[in-house]
């Protein structure tokens, strides 16, 4: 029935939505930033542990749609162990992929985040996928205010 939607809602996304990874409040986090899209109600708090410019741990709490939940869950997995510069580079690639700036998805660079490429066919949902990454960007820049992609 939902054949047209399989590009957007891949099984990996359902899996992360049902069982989000790194889903807990981190005690003693070095960075903590809230991402909130009031129009749709997606809300998350991102926690990072840093060692110099390296992200040693990442977790999140919150509630949202399957796209935003899967996106933040996947993000916390892939940024662990990355330097700030590496994470920012990934953010740019992710942004280009979801907004359709890059015609071809660079699979090598983007890795498993590629499951979210389908969102670019759904302009109303891009903000759901990118909320996590804008929140990460704010956390890396050590900004405190709540982040929104609406």
């Amino acid at each position: 029935m939902f054949d047209d939607l399989r590009d957007l809602y891949q099984e990996v996304i359902f899996d992360h939505n049902r069982n989000p990874r790194n889903f807990y409040v981190m005690e003693g986090a070095d960075r903590k930033v809230e991402g909130f899209n009031p129009l749709c109600g997606d809300r998350l708090t991102l926690f990072l542990k840093m060692d110099g410019d390296k992200i040693t741990d990442a977790s999140f709490q919150g509630s949202g749609c399957a796209i935003s939940t899967a996106s933040v869950s996947l993000m916390t997995e892939v940024v662990k162990g990355k330097t700030e510069a590496e994470a920012e580079a990934l953010f740019k690639q992710f942004h280009d992929m979801t907004t359709g700036k890059e015609e071809e998805v660079n699979l090598e660079a983007i890795g498993k985040l590629a499951v979210l490429a389908g969102v670019r066919e759904y302009p109303a949902r891009v903000k759901c996928a990118t909320l996590a990454w804008h929140t990460l960007d704010a956390a890396l820049k050590n900004e405190q205010e709540s982040i929104s992609t609406e």
Partner: peptide, 23 residues
């Protein structure tokens, strides 16, 4: 239960059904 209204909105849209999802 466990399905966010925005996912409902996108999925129903793929069937040609326009509903509102939001506050």
């Amino acid at each position: 239960d466990k399905i966010h209204p925005h996912d409902i909105g996108t999925m129903l849209d793929s069937l040609g059904i326009a509903v509102r999802a939001g506050h």
